[in-house]
Design a binder for these strands. Sequence first.
DNA 1: GTCTATACTTTGATAGAC
DNA 2: GTCTATCAAAGTATAGAC
Lengths: 198, 198
Amino acid sequence: MWVPVPTRDRILDATGQLFRRHGYTGTGLKQVVAAAHAPFGSLYHHFPGGKEQLGGEVIRASGRMYLELFEMVMDASPDPVAGIEAFFEGAAATLEETDYADACPIATVALEVASTSEALREATAEVFDSWIAAGTRRFTAAGLNEACSRQLTIEMFTGLEGAFILSRATRSTEAVLLAGARAVASAREAGAGGSDVR
Amino acid sequence: MWVPVPTRDRILDATGQLFRRHGYTGTGLKQVVAAAHAPFGSLYHHFPGGKEQLGGEVIRASGRMYLELFEMVMDASPDPVAGIEAFFEGAAATLEETDYADACPIATVALEVASTSEALREATAEVFDSWIAAGTRRFTAAGLNEACSRQLTIEMFTGLEGAFILSRATRSTEAVLLAGARAVASAREAGAGGSDVR
DNA sequence: GTCTATACTTTGATAGAC
DNA sequence: GTCTATCAAAGTATAGAC
């Protein structure tokens, strides 16, 4: 049975999509309501704080969704190393499928607002911190110590984010694939439970 | 003796500065001419192609400048590994000095235009390719084979770019420092001429 | 080449009827 | 809660005097 999607959620979804491809300043509110099939007034009814409030909620929602994707891929893998491999391979596949449009849901916005909106910058920082915490938990559970886990996690997401920039610009998955291989090698060396006998 | 800076160059410089902090769509042309102390008409006299032409030239000029910085740091270092270390340390220092504003001169713009302007996307791709070529040259000269050199270079810039995102968002140099350590370790393992006896 | 004035469009935001 | 009409400001771009 079909259930209508609430206006507020449609606006959130549409904005998230637009943010990925056009960024924060590149996305107009009129564009948002058109994509969300919502009347203009509804936007300010649901988000009285205007574009900045909407931006903050979209950043947090997008960050949460990407975190869930990460957890899901890791859960579906036999061990953390295989999980990392699958995560990067999935990222590369998505890039190709979407003509290099869908990479990190908040990276573009994060760079745009880093020096222009303290409120939004904090939202992006919280998202990245939540990813780091989740990765650190994973690797700690696999036997690594806290410091090692955190370091490995940051290297992994750092490599992924940077690779997204190069891959989208050059329209090639080379960077993402290399970053994935690098993350896998680091995880294996750190002893994050590869399936190989050691 | 003081020599006046041509209007065209002042516009290019000012736009480059603004692009770093506000991005492409976030930078208005009125803002540009104000910062460059240039009359509005001069902008269209020197850049008849409007904002997109200006953007393209700024991307290429900024990319060239950052490449020169890389070459300079590498030249000033005893070996490639030490050069990488110095490059990342310099990046971290600049971040702190500028309150996390000045990182990669074209990253924000690269993500913004990747799916919105083919002409500008190509400009960013050319810049990244030029960096990769320069790094590959360095490591090849240090004794690594072509494939290894390219891989190491991409991993290095990929790590730097991703670390810039996390560092600017969280206002911490942790990610850049970790990415630097990772690049140094990779270069050393690959055999890019560390000063240590092996 | 420099500079001013202006045209036209889009932006974020608000008011008020329903 | 939904929707339309409208505002002031900022956006890019152009014309034309000097």
